[in-house]
Design a protein around this nucleic acid. Sequence first.
DNA 1: AATTAGTTTGACCAAATGGTCAGGAAGACG
DNA 2: CGTCTTCCTGACCATTTGGTCAAACTAATT
Lengths: 204, 204
Amino acid sequence: MAKQQGRTRIQKKNRTTILEAALEVFSKFGFRGSTLDQIAKQAGLSKPNVLYYFPSKEAIHTELLSCLMETWLDPLLDMDANGDPKTEILAYMRRKLQMSRDFPRESRLFANEILQGAPHILGELKGELKDLTDEKAAIISGWMDQGLIAKSNAHHLLFSIWSLTQHYADFEVQVCAVLGCGGQEQYQQAEEYLDALFTKLLSI
Amino acid sequence: MAKQQGRTRIQKKNRTTILEAALEVFSKFGFRGSTLDQIAKQAGLSKPNVLYYFPSKEAIHTELLSCLMETWLDPLLDMDANGDPKTEILAYMRRKLQMSRDFPRESRLFANEILQGAPHILGELKGELKDLTDEKAAIISGWMDQGLIAKSNAHHLLFSIWSLTQHYADFEVQVCAVLGCGGQEQYQQAEEYLDALFTKLLSI
DNA sequence: AATTAGTTTGACCAAATGGTCAGGAAGACG
DNA sequence: CGTCTTCCTGACCATTTGGTCAAACTAATT
């Protein structure tokens, strides 16, 4: 983590540029489907120059993913055990849906990685992700036991939030094809629909 | 369609073998991440022999996808406008969940394709898929208008069935990492959870 | 201005990859 | 059995790809 901060301003700028370009390319074609040339071109740098800042294609991918993992967990971290259960869960769902809307590339990068068996981040999944999920699922189960929200499987409740919200980023092409829309109009409808869905689900 | 049936028994067998091998490989690494050598090895054939049965790597992929599209739409086709609304929708959801359990590779192949912008099947998405979806969404909306099930956005209701069920196949690694399970125990829990979810959602 | 440290690139390399082809092996069939 | 068609393969090819390197260029620093 520490050594990742480039020292000079030029290093900082170029590393950022490369990571941004890599996100664009990797999220579109997956790891094995992306080439260094594509990334270099997208970044406006030469290929050897890209490899001057990162030791390999894989290193770029790995750094991108580990940065992403934190971003991905943040909204869940914010779910407060002392808040109002229904409010907390709905707010978490809305934050995730916003992330799908605002960071679809990140969502697709993550989805690509998981789809292919998560070769680069299986450790984080079984570690950080599992731990945090277990912790928050326990909180939700607590709320259920106290009769504050309807009983259901807390882990699968979290899964359903993930899948329902990320679907709009990961399967955007399909959603747009079916709805016949080009832009982001679907997110307004999605929020209304998901709001209603989880409100009903959590009501006793 | 017609010319795809190999004439001789040996053709039939080998084409099937190749498609099965390709499914295994493509679903794991995506189109660009898979190689003809991998497919050939998986099929137990030589690379030139694979290319004797299919003109190119892309042709294998395309055929796989178009066969898949039908399989994928079938469960939705079965949803009957004259049946009991809640039963029909729940049964459709269960069929989709079973498909995730029994055909995860097919699900992942499809997900891979959509994730990358559906370059090979965008036409089918905007055609067959959209038409069928619109048709069934209209049926569901009709049920809602008649007060047989709770009102909500019918298109997004279908999206939610797709995302919730396919999640267990496409993100299997993640689900298993979080639940700490190796096999398919999650599908039992998933069915219970999703059953309850949609029952609540559809109840007036 | 001179020296040094940091940055950039064209040319290059080895390996992998999609695909071809001539000819050999194996079935089908009279 | 002989002929004809279908099936299969080793060797080969052009291109792409991740990655290297020496040399050139630029920015700091003294």
